[in-house]
C-alpha cells in the first residue's frame, strides 16, 4: 500500500502543474507517474488524489508562514460511515461503546448507536459515524493502514471549489458552506456521498459533518488568547482579526473555531472523520 512520491511532487513547489488540473485528470497523470497498480487500488479503496497545493491558515502566529505548502496526498472521497466503523469495533473490541477507556472517549461515545454492535434507527449504516473521539478515529485509520489528514491537508482539499481550485471565488461554494451553518444538525444524519463533490472528486467537505484532523489541537492551545500570550494568535472577538489572513473566509474561521473547542477525548454529535494516505 505504501507508495513513494515521485520527485516531481516537491512539497516546496505548491503551484505545480497538476494543481491546476481537474481531479480525475490529475489522478490519471499520477497513475502514469506512480508505480503501476497503486492508484487503481486506491481508487477502489475510495481514495482521491489531492494535487500539491497551498494552505493559507486563517489564523497564525507572528512567526508562522502565510502559506503552507501541501504535498500531494490521497484523501477518502467520503467520511467514514457507521457501517465501516461497526466493522472496526467488531475487530477491535476495546473500541466498543461499553469497553472504551474513559481516558480515550467521553461518556457520549457512539451514544446514538442502539448497542455495542447494533446501529439502530439513529445511526443509518451509510450515514457518517459521529460521536467518536480523536483517539478512536486515529485507531480506525491506523487499523486501515491510513492516517487522519493534517489541518493543512484537509483545508487545502476543502478550499477547492466545485469547478476550480479556489472555492472562495465561486458563489455556489459560499452559499453551500454558509448554508450548512444556517441549519442546526438533524437528529439523524444523511448518507455520506450525498453532497456535491469538489473539483477533485471529494464529497461532503462543506456540508455534512465536521471532521477530525490529526493536528486539531495546533489551531490554538487555549480557549481564549486575547491576552495571555504575546502572539497575535488571537481567535476571539475583534482581536481575533489581528492574526487572520482572509478575513472574509467565515467557514474556515468556523472550522478553526470548532477545532480549537475540542479535546482529544471529546465526542460531538456532528463530528466525524475521514482518512488520508501519503502516496
Amino acid at each position: 500500500m505504501i507508495v513513494h512520491a515521485p520527485v516531481a511532487f516537491s512539497a516546496m513547489k505548491p503551484f505545480h502543474l497538476l494543481s491546476f488540473l481537474p481531479g480525475p485528470l490529475a489522478v490519471a497523470l499520477v497513475a502514469a507517474l506512480l508505480p503501476a497498480g497503486a492508484v487503481r487500488g486506491e481508487e477502489a479503496a475510495g481514495l482521491v488524489l489531492i494535487p500539491a497545493g497551498v494552505h493559507e491558515p486563517v489564523l497564525r502566529g507572528q512567526d508562522e508562514p502565510r502559506q503552507v505548502a501541501v504535498a500531494p496526498f490521497l484523501l477518502e472521497a467520503r467520511p467514514v460511515t457507521n457501517a465501516e466503523f461497526l466493522a472496526f469495533v467488531r475487530d477491535q473490541p476495546k473500541w466498543r461503546r461499553s469497553r472504551v477507556a474513559p481516558l480515550f472517549a467521553d461518556a457520549g461515545y457512539l451514544a446514538h448507536w442502539a448497542g455495542d454492535l447494533e446501529l439502530g434507527p439513529k445511526a443509518p449504516a451509510e450515514a457518517p459515524v459521529v460521536r467518536v473521539s480523536w483517539f478512536a478515529a486515529r485507531a480506525y485509520a491506523a487499523a486501515k493502514g491510513r492516517r487522519l489528514p493534517t489541518t493543512a491537508e484537509w483545508e487545502r482539499a476543502a478550499a477547492a471549489g466545485f469547478r476550480g481550485e479556489r472555492g472562495a471565488d465561486e458563489p455556489e461554494y459560499r452559499r453551500v458552506a454558509l448554508g450548512w451553518l444556517a441549519q442546526p444538525s438533524p437528529d439523524v444524519l444523511p448518507a455520506v456521498g450525498s453532497r456535491r463533490a469538489s473539483v477533485h472528486g471529494v464529497h461532503d467537505l462543506l456540508d455534512l459533518v465536521w471532521e477530525w484532523v490529526d493536528d486539531f489541537n495546533t489551531t490554538m492551545t487555549t480557549g481564549e488568547s486575547r491576552g495571555d500570550t504575546g502572539l497575535e494568535r488571537t481567535l476571539f472577538c475583534g482581536a481575533g482579526a489581528a492574526g487572520a489572513q482572509d478575513l472574509t473566509n467565515y467557514p474556515a474561521f468556523m472550522r478553526a473555531g470548532m477545532r480549537s473547542a475540542l479535546r482529544a477525548r471529546y465526542v460531538v454529535p456532528n463530528l466525524g472523520f475521514r482518512c488520508a494516505l501519503s502516496p
Binding site: G223, R226, F236, A261, L262
Partner: peptide, 15 residues
C-alpha cells in the same frame, strides 16, 4: 477578567 469569561466558557456542541 480575561475575555469576560470567554476564555473559560469555550464549549463544543454537547458540552
Amino acid at each position: 477578567g480575561p475575555g469576560g469569561g470567554a476564555a473559560s466558557t469555550f464549549t463544543a456542541p454537547g458540552h
